[in-house]
Design a protein around this nucleic acid. Sequence first.
DNA 1: ATAAACCTGACTAAAATAGTCAAGTATCAT
DNA 2: ATGATACTTGACTATTTTAGTCAGGTTTAT
Lengths: 141, 141
Amino acid sequence: MKLTSKGRYAVMALVDLARFDNISPVSLRDISLRQGISLDYLEQIFSKLRKNQIVQSVRGTQGGYVLNKKAKEIKLTNIFDAVDEKVKTVQCKKESKKGCNGKLTKCVTHNLWDDLDKHINNFFEQKSLEDLVKDNSEKRI
Amino acid sequence: MKLTSKGRYAVMALVDLARFDNISPVSLRDISLRQGISLDYLEQIFSKLRKNQIVQSVRGTQGGYVLNKKAKEIKLTNIFDAVDEKVKTVQCKKESKKGCNGKLTKCVTHNLWDDLDKHINNFFEQKSLEDLVKDNSEKRI
DNA sequence: ATAAACCTGACTAAAATAGTCAAGTATCAT
DNA sequence: ATGATACTTGACTATTTTAGTCAGGTTTAT
């Protein structure tokens, strides 16, 4: 099990954005430089974040992105959902009455993955962007 | 983020084993048939489980595998560790004092992944093989 | 007008995954 | 003893996912 860079970058970029977007829109170029993430890749990520109403874009010179909601209202769940960073556990065909892998019974671990899903998503639902920004600024000297 | 088949299969196979190994060693062939997992793949998985002292092998005719500890004492953590199903979150170079991606400061989300690690591992440490076997037999008719 | 910055889609190298395949070795039942 | 069963090991491979790159736009402040 692993977290991919896409999810990690999305969070890093949004924390960056949350810090600076009250002054003026933040350009991806700036985020790219500060966070060390490829500009082209950031564009892909922000395209998804925008489609999911997490950020708003401001076009033209001096343009960039701003958060679409308050940092407090953006949970990690929302971010991960937006960039398709999902907790995939059970690959069983849920549609089929026969259950997992065409077997007659549910695979013995079916419920386990459901529980795990809940457990992880619970964590993601607790944490907001604001929490992360605070965590980070506290540790600054 | 996802759970791979290897971890899923390992758990499925061990639950199967826990059910039947008090009668006699369980052959991989039987597990393969009951759980619908390729025999060759099971062999890879059990090789790792054996090296990590989770199961014992019994060679020869009527041979197979038995659990090396009581089902209660085998936690999911142990199983996932054995088959290299790890929760990978931070890919930052921990050795370097410079921290994540060669930046001067820790990447803003560094602590987040640490927390997530703990949260998930906490779940895995709670659940034992016995829990899974019980869960499953209760739901049988 | 022109440069900054967003926007889109197609493409690709590298890594991970989910196996397969081949060639053993050990041991029990007869 | 000998054959069948079942464990053991290591190499190989097709597919998928990841983590980007690349090329071409469009919008708008100045």
